[in-house]
């Protein structure tokens, strides 16, 4: 069945009902075809944790997870993720408790101004689900598309390592050697 919605009056944004799972909850919303996932999340659902950075796919601040994989919400139409599970930074903490990644970013000073942090955390979350014990090189590769203008990359990588227990393993190795 081919959708021919909007083939009539082009001066109006056509809307359709979008069925989508956001942070674990199914919902249905009327969404215009030209609405980007970023605008849908921020302006319709008020999930403003996902940031609008460069707005052109260059900085990664808008990174969310779509079916568990990182996606740039500023380059994705909302209707393109119909039926998918979208996870934003707001899904990280549960019952007021920080997620391991959030806790690690907090403890290891992974956030400076904090604007890139939601994207960094979600990109890291996408990595850790596929690869629970990444090497430093794999972490740097996975966060390659995320820009931090405070340039706090070392602390960010350390935060991700701490979150996946890599640092603990390193400490244990040191103890073993001692």
């Amino acid at each position: 069945m081919v959708s021919r919605k909007g083939s009539g009056d082009m001066n109006q944004n056509t809307k359709r009902i979008l069925r989508i799972q956001v942070n674990g909850r199914w919902r249905e919303d009327a969404v215009a075809d030209n609405q980007l996932l970023l605008d849908y999340l921020r302006e319709q659902l008020y999930l403003t944790g996902t940031k609008r950075g460069c707005d052109g796919g260059e900085c990664g601040a808008c990174t969310v997870l779509v079916d568990g994989r990182p996606r740039l919400a500023c380059c994705t139409f909302a209707v393109a993720v119909e039926g998918c599970h979208v996870e934003t930074i707001e899904s990280q903490s549960q019952d007021g408790r920080l997620s391991p990644l959030q806790q690690a970013f907090h403890e290891k000073l992974g956030a400076q101004c904090g604007f890139c942090t939601p994207g960094m955390v979600m990109a890291a979350e996408g990595l850790l689900r596929r690869n629970p014990h990444p090497t430093e090189a794999e972490i740097r590769e996975a966060l390659g598309g995320n820009l931090c203008r405070c340039t706090g990359y070392v602390k960010i990588v350390e935060s991700v390592q701490a979150a996946c227990g890599a640092e603990k393993n390193a400490d244990e190795k040191m103890e073993e050697r001692a």
Binding site: M1, V2, S3, R4, K5, G6, S7, M10, N11, Q12, N13, T14, D33, N34, Q35, L36, D55, G56, F77, V79, A80
Partner: peptide, 14 residues
């Protein structure tokens, strides 16, 4: 960046 121009998205199956 400015708001997106008015457009519709069609999803063909073939």
């Amino acid at each position: 960046m400015q708001a997106l121009q008015t457009l519709s998205i069609q999803k063909p199956e073939t």
